[in-house]
Amino acid sequence: MGFVSFLGRLLFASLFILSAWQMFNDFGTDGGPAAKELAPKIVFVQRFLASMIGDKMPKIDVKHVVLGSMVLKGVGGILFIFGSTTGAHLLVYNLLLMTPLLHDFYHYEMDDPKFHTRLSEFVECLALLGALLYFIGMKSVLPRKLMKKRPIKTKTI
């Protein structure tokens, strides 16, 4: 069972690790295609935060967001392969931060073909998030169950 569990974690984490590797190869001087896609969305988030906080809001650099996502995916994926809940937490943080930015189906009308594509990608990320939360939950419950088992006492005659 241990090998099957390791293989499952390896296949699951390969999604994140290969994505981080592709982002790393495409990064270049401008942040790559990920930065080009995120740039208008980061500007929107920055305007929203500036309206809430004020003009003292520091500028959010898109390259730093892409770099942060790349690090969270890479390090989190590698740690997750070895069964670490820290790696699962890093992947959860990445999904929570990047999913609403990348898959913004809520900005499109239902008639638009992009709506259905973005919605299906959003739901896919929610499924990945659910799997990671399940992993974290099972990791926290398993040691408690093992501690509750008491050794059987032998009877003396």
Rank of each mutant, 00 (worst) to 15 (best):
N94A: 04
L95D: 00
M98I: 03
H89N: 04
K145S: 11
L96M: 00
I81N: 06
K139A: 13
A88I: 03
I136P: 05
K56R: 05
I60M: 06
A34C: 12
L38Y: 01
F115Y: 05
G8R: 02
V4I: 11
G87K: 07
L133M: 10
L90A: 02
V43E: 12
T29E: 15
A88H: 07
P100W: 06
Y134R: 08
M110R: 11
G77H: 00
D112A: 07
R9H: 08
M98R: 02
L132M: 07
L101Y: 04
K149I: 15
D104Q: 05
S51I: 03
K148I: 09
K63E: 05
K155Y: 08
D30W: 15
F6G: 02
R9M: 09
N25Q: 14
V123C: 11
V4P: 02
Y108T: 11
I81H: 05
Q46F: 00
F27G: 05
A127V: 09
C125N: 15
R118S: 06
W21P: 03
L15Q: 06
P40S: 13
S5R: 05
V45E: 08
L102V: 12
F6V: 05
G87R: 03
M23Y: 10
D26R: 11
A20Q: 03
L97Q: 08
L101P: 01
K36S: 10
D55M: 08
V62R: 01
V71T: 09
V43L: 06
H64P: 04
V123L: 14
P143F: 13
R144M: 12
P100H: 06
I17V: 04
S14L: 09
D30G: 14
A88G: 01
L67A: 10
I81W: 14
Q22G: 13
A131Q: 10
F80R: 07
T85I: 15
L18Y: 12
M138V: 13
D26H: 06
P58H: 08
I81C: 11
Q22N: 15
E124M: 06
R47V: 01
R118M: 14
G32Y: 11
E124Q: 06
F105C: 00
S14G: 09
L38G: 02
